[in-house]
Amino acid sequence: MTDFIQVATLDDVAPGKMFRVELDGRRILLANTNGTIYACDEMCTHEDFSLALGALQGDCLKCSLHGSRFDLKTGKALDEPAEEDLAVYPVKVEDNSIFVAIG
């Protein structure tokens, strides 16, 4: 059984924006694209660089250091130099609360 933990509210992650949280010692990035909330690791898999400094492009997240893009739905690395996929986590929204499961 997957345990979901409340990490934020919808007010924290406006459409087109990102919000960083810490959950069980992990830095998690929440992203709101067109009203859908995604959760992924906050650090780029290519370099130890914060993806919170990047940009949302549709359902993709672009790292501002070297330009690698990641699919927010699957975590798949879409562009070099990143070759390793990004960890993504299940999200559920109830009322105004955002819950993420990492284990």
Rank of each mutant, 00 (worst) to 15 (best):
residue 76 K to S: 01
residue 78 L to W: 00
residue 27 R to S: 12
residue 89 Y to D: 01
residue 57 Q to T: 07
residue 7 V to A: 09
residue 37 I to H: 09
residue 31 A to M: 15
residue 64 S to F: 08
residue 75 G to F: 00
residue 103 G to E: 10
residue 49 F to T: 13
residue 57 Q to P: 00
residue 90 P to N: 09
residue 41 D to I: 01
residue 103 G to A: 08
residue 64 S to V: 13
residue 101 A to F: 02
residue 73 K to F: 04
residue 39 A to Y: 03
residue 18 M to L: 13
residue 90 P to K: 06
residue 53 L to T: 05
residue 36 T to R: 15
residue 54 G to E: 06
residue 32 N to I: 07
residue 8 A to G: 12
residue 59 D to F: 01
residue 85 D to W: 00
residue 11 D to L: 10
residue 24 D to F: 08
residue 84 E to H: 06
residue 39 A to K: 11
residue 2 T to N: 10
residue 99 F to T: 03
residue 96 N to T: 14
residue 44 C to K: 04
residue 87 A to I: 00
residue 103 G to N: 11
residue 16 G to E: 13
residue 28 I to F: 05
residue 1 M to N: 10
residue 17 K to I: 05
residue 102 I to K: 02
residue 53 L to F: 10
residue 39 A to T: 08
residue 68 S to E: 03
residue 54 G to K: 09
residue 10 L to F: 07
residue 13 V to W: 07
residue 89 Y to H: 04
residue 29 L to D: 04
residue 28 I to V: 12
residue 9 T to N: 15
residue 47 E to R: 15
residue 92 K to C: 12
residue 99 F to L: 12
residue 10 L to I: 13
residue 74 T to C: 03
residue 60 C to G: 00
residue 36 T to I: 15
residue 52 A to R: 05
residue 2 T to V: 14
residue 97 S to Q: 13
residue 59 D to K: 06
residue 52 A to C: 12
residue 56 L to T: 06
residue 14 A to Q: 15
residue 48 D to F: 14
residue 72 L to N: 01
residue 16 G to M: 09
residue 90 P to W: 06
residue 17 K to T: 15
residue 33 T to S: 15
residue 55 A to S: 14
residue 48 D to N: 15
residue 79 D to F: 02
residue 71 D to P: 02
residue 10 L to D: 08
residue 90 P to H: 07
residue 44 C to F: 05
residue 23 L to Q: 14
residue 65 L to Q: 14
residue 97 S to L: 13
residue 83 E to T: 02
residue 72 L to F: 01
residue 15 P to Q: 13
residue 74 T to H: 06
residue 74 T to Y: 02
residue 88 V to C: 08
residue 65 L to K: 15
residue 82 A to V: 03
residue 38 Y to I: 02
residue 31 A to L: 07
residue 33 T to D: 13
residue 70 F to I: 03
residue 55 A to F: 14
residue 5 I to P: 00
residue 34 N to S: 13
residue 82 A to G: 06
residue 17 K to R: 15
residue 78 L to M: 11
residue 52 A to Q: 10
residue 86 L to R: 01
residue 29 L to F: 06
residue 103 G to S: 12
residue 71 D to H: 06
residue 39 A to N: 07
residue 43 M to D: 01
residue 36 T to N: 15
residue 96 N to M: 08
residue 52 A to H: 08
